[in-house]
Amino acid sequence: MKIVGLRLATTAVFALAFALAVKAADRDEGGDSAHGFQAKLEYCKTCHGLSGEGYRGYFPMPRLAGQQPKYIENQLRAFIERRRVNPVMFNVAHVLSPATLAALSEHFRNLNPEPIGGGPRDHIALGKTIFEQGLPESNVPACSACHGPEAKGHEEIPRLAGQLFPYTLKALSYWGKERGVGGSRDDTSAIMVPTTHNLTHEQMSAIAAYLSYMK
């Protein structure tokens, strides 16, 4: 009888502890629990696409699928530290815990949807040439030298393959205004400043068009 009572008490204690844990997880808005993580993941995908393929709203929301986790982490930190200016993403990033951030970037790395495409097709050939060979006469290095021959990126250097046409075009057009702000030496995005200054609008558009179809 005593043993049964003890067992019941133990079960009750475990049940209570479990219930409290579940309640804590529900409240966990930073997303560290499994429940919180799924909700946060759905939140990201609401704007960036159900497969991370990106979305064309008033502002283009970039493809995250197949993106380098180190790049995603570095950019989210850049939003928080105001090295990269984007009011919406500042708010998004500053509630993410490091553990959630790592799990999210790992999740997106493994997605591989078809690119949305959409760049002007008559510009693709010029874009391919610039991507593979650069523009020696304008001192523009080949994009592939750093981003890789298949534009898959490496560590902090982003994947560009399949990125949305208007997103890449906007990034190249306003580079120094949005990224590498504040002159921090740690910010690797400053590397791109001279390159973007040496590109014409037509050349930027060509690169963005070529990348938008790349798998």
Partner: peptide
């Protein structure tokens, strides 16, 4: 997890 409306609209 309420997304911003401004990004699309």
């Amino acid at each position: 997890n309420v997304v911003s409306c401004i990004v699309c609209h």
